[in-house]
Simulated scan of single mutants.
Amino acid sequence: MFFSIVIPTYNRKPILEKCLIALEHQQLSDHKVQGYEIVLVDDGSTDGTLLWLADHKDQFPHVRSLCQDHQGPAAARNLGVNESLGDTIIFIDSDLVVTEQFLQSHADALIEAEKKLGSDRLFTYGWVINTCNFDDPTSEPYKITDFSAAYFATGNVAIAKKWLLMAGLFDTRFQLYGWEDLELGVRLKKLQLTLIKCPAAVGYHWHPPFKLDQIPALIDKEIQRGRMGVLFYQKHPHWEVRLMIQMTWLHRILWGVLSVGGRLNEHTMAPLLQWLINQGKPQLALEIARIFLNWYNVQGVYAAYKEMQQQS
């Protein structure tokens, strides 16, 4: 088994350094893993990522860097897979910091599951723990909010390259934020691949502590996610996808009631959110902000769906 760790990156140089250092310190305990490479795809960064990597290439012997114009993570991951040398692909994001047992844990889980199932139609998904601790991200404990019910998500997943090629890789029409990995997951599910949870393969997903000035960008992401959700539904017009993208009357009523028809928003809730931030509880403030962020998402979904209907 030879791993190719495919990482798309865009203007994340500070945390990317921690990500790559952690991957260079993997402890492989047996001969099952013949080796690994890190395929870093720079998606048109403007922060000097590639220049920095060239200046520090001796620190990262496993890294092969590729670059493309800014096209989004779907195109970046496709480029990484197509240029990879490994038989097994691991997808992580460039703001993920892993433990020293990360690769070995994925390898053990893949081999054990294949023996148990009597088939190699499977992939492993590790834990992703969210943290805003930049200095020591791996000290963050697992929280209930870190749970994910997604079938296939690229935050921390290992899968045989042949299944990705058979499914057709990522759809590069997903150029805005969201859904390109779960859409590929629908196609992988049609190939009858089994999801194997691998909590021993832990990655710590860093993001800066929540501040009020982040809200406009977060709202924009939710609107983008709504638009990409409609593209997802356009490709797979099933009830399961409608539930995923929150395009149901249930979601419309739920977030409408919780946000009081949009009256609880970034303006009216700002004093409470700022108070929580001042109390040292930025993560709680972010979770409360998700009330109106989800409202924006649902509004974005239905606006994009109406636009799609008008065009057709």
Rank of each mutant, 00 (worst) to 15 (best):
V301Q: 11
F91D: 02
L191T: 06
Q26S: 07
K190F: 09
L40H: 04
T154C: 09
L122S: 05
H62N: 10
D213I: 12
D171M: 00
G280R: 03
V128F: 03
D47Y: 07
Y10N: 13
K143Y: 12
I111Y: 12
I219Y: 08
H267T: 15
Q311N: 10
A109P: 04
G229S: 02
A107T: 02
N133S: 13
S148T: 10
T172R: 04
K57G: 04
L250Y: 13
R290Y: 13
G35P: 05
K143P: 07
I38E: 03
G44H: 02
L40Y: 05
Q68H: 09
S105M: 08
I21N: 10
A285S: 00
D108N: 12
D135A: 14
F2N: 15
T268S: 15
H25K: 15
F2D: 13
L96Y: 13
C19Y: 08
T145K: 10
L79V: 07
P14Q: 05
I245H: 06
A270M: 07
Q311I: 05
W275F: 12
I89Y: 01
Y125I: 13
P14A: 03
I144D: 14
L85D: 11
L231R: 09
V260D: 15
G168Y: 01
P8F: 00
N156E: 05
R173C: 02
P209N: 06
S119N: 02
C198A: 03
N130R: 14
A76L: 00
E222P: 05
S105R: 06
A217V: 09
G185N: 01
G226F: 00
C132Q: 15
I38V: 07
P141V: 01
R173L: 02
G44W: 04
L250A: 11
L293I: 11
C132S: 15
P271L: 02
K190W: 08
V260E: 15
Q224T: 03
L165D: 06
Y125H: 14
Q34Y: 12
F292A: 05
V63F: 00
W206A: 00
S259F: 08
I111H: 09
L40W: 03
G80R: 04
G44Y: 02
F2R: 15
L273C: 01
F210V: 02
P208H: 11
R12H: 12
M244R: 13
V98H: 12
R227N: 10
W179M: 04
F3V: 01
Q234P: 01
S45D: 06
T145N: 10
E24R: 07
K18I: 08
A217M: 08
F232D: 04
T194H: 12
D135I: 13
W275L: 12
D136M: 13
S65R: 10
R263V: 12
